[in-house]
Design a binder for these strands. Structure first.
Lengths: 148, 148
DNA sequence: TGAATACGGACTGAACAAGTCGGATATTTA
DNA sequence: TAAATATCCGACTTGTTCAGTCCGTATTCA
């Protein structure tokens, strides 16, 4: 069904939330989880992953928590999704590692790889800041090229 | 991980195969399955779904099988995927039916809905014919606009 | 020292995908 | 008519992944 995992959703929501509250030095996983009504322990793990990937900075102890490691403008939706769900491929047979086990069959996957790149490009063009600004509609356009 | 189901892959492969053999009036599920080394019974179900969706015509009995219901140029990858996997949404909370159960939280999903539309646009711009022609590279470009 | 926090492994339950099985119906051919 | 080849369709199994929980450890601050 081509959909994002809930973890990725939560991750994006959390980063958006952090981007919207730059004045607070660090927000705990619980703070953010409560704000959105999502499971705190689950969100905690997601934030840990984002920290390991270098998108967040963490600080343990009282008054600890998480903060953006970069400016919101410099974090793309792609990075977040990639950090949480790993590399995504629209085709089942990735072609990268060893590729299809189906004989020469999968001539389908080459054009779909282009589609994959296009989607990745779209997600790379969206920053956390874009998400945070969503309230006041400042419509911006992005052109994406699909070369088949 | 944002990936297509194997069923959708199989469906696209089968349609491509049919588009490549227009001279044959009808190909059975088994014929196509054998050509690609995929499970015949599974492919059969997929082809039945595509028939119900109006993308294929079927004919039972000896020398029966499936044929494209429209010209390959007029069948998009989107239609195929949609027929097999149903409507896809990149966001977990679809917003369509009732939407998010998470309070007002999911401000994330509006921009992602645009991404969703963009992806759908890309897939709609690719026809089965495009896939079938893939061998002799006749590169064509498609411009897609993402309005955030 | 104790509370609050990040960190991280192991586990459970539910959902889903992939594939199989078995049988019913339709059509053609011998 | 009978057999062979097909589509058609529901139920089932199996394996994997996702979402979420539990629990213990390490870190920081008051």
């Amino acid at each position: 069904m081509l959909k994002l995992s809930k973890k990725a959703d939560y991750g994006l929501m959390a980063l958006k939330y952090l981007a919207e509250h730059p004045e607070i030095l660090a927000l705990s996983a619980k703070d953010i989880a409560d704000a959105y009504g999502i499971p705190a322990q689950l969100l905690a793990k997601i934030l840990q992953q984002l920290t390991k990937s270098g998108l967040l900075r963490s600080h343990a102890g009282m008054n600890g928590g998480y903060a953006l490691a970069k400016e919101a403008r410099q974090i793309s939706a792609y990075e977040v999704i990639h950090a949480i769900d790993g590399p995504f491929f629209i085709t089942s047979c990735t072609k990268g590692a060893k590729g299809c086990d189906l004989t020469p069959s999968c001539t389908i996957k080459e054009p779909l790889a282009r589609v994959n790149d296009t989607i990745a490009g779209v997600l790379k063009s969206i920053s956390i800041q874009d998400l945070a600004e969503q309230e006041h509609p400042a419509p911006s356009q992005t052109l994406v090229t699909l070369t088949l």
